[in-house]
Design a protein around this nucleic acid. Structure first.
Lengths: 110, 110
DNA sequence: ACACTTAATCGTAATATTGCAATGAACGAA
DNA sequence: TTCGTTCATTGCAATATTACGATTAAGTGT
């Protein structure tokens, strides 16, 4: 029905999935990479940098903000976005832990 | 339009996003965790383990197979699934690299 | 006040995802 | 063969996502 049954999973599973979901779009990957690369907090030149319309970029920025990975501050008519270092490191920690899992039987069994 | 414009992004960005997208559902996280935990390759008892209907689990398994994270082999009437170690390590590498990024200016600038 | 810039929001269209009942295909056992 | 088990596939309904034009809100400059 298009609706995820979050209630049958653990908080940890839901959190990992929610984070991964936000990273699950190339535009948001590109936005994050751009924010990491550019020393200064770039603003809406993400629109020209990435080839999507302004409302679309704004929507992606909101999703990144929703999980706290980025934050923005208003500078006149512009808005300055940057990585939320603390949240980013938390996300990294959580995903590292999940990705570090290894099969007990090394060597695939099927 | 519900259709991602993959053509305007790099292959790397698309690959990262595709992987993250597959990890972006708690059921698939739960399936992977179960496959890691259980020494033997479990089969359709994922259905009882996780509380979703059999067709739903089957669908999630297919998505995990599509990106090669798991593989299955037929054992009589049952199907035995397990982690594809090589692909898993490739995914880990790629995501580790992305997650390891750090802002140049340490300390958020906005 | 007026024009201009920037970015969020609204509304909408197209497509994707999630979940399941029903069905089908493949195998083992009686 | 027939029955039961296991899992994939099909078809469908409900919801979510992606993208953008049009508009709005807020700020700057003249």
């Amino acid at each position: 029905m298009g609706l995820t049954k979050t209630e049958i999973f653990t908080d940890q599973q839901n959190t990992i999935a929610q984070l991964a979901k936000v990273l699950g779009h190339p535009a948001r990957i590109a936005i994050l990479q751009h924010l990491f690369r550019s020393d200064t907090c770039v603003c809406g030149d993400l629109v020209t940098e990435i080839g999507l319309a302004q409302p679309t970029i704004s929507q992606h920025l909101r999703e990144l903000k929703n999980v706290n990975l980025i934050q923005g501050s208003i500078e006149g008519t512009k808005v300055c976005y940057c990585i939320n270092t603390e949240a980013w490191e938390g996300a990294r920690e959580l995903l590292f832990l999940f990705l570090s899992q290894q099969p007990k039987t090394n060597g695939d069994c099927c």
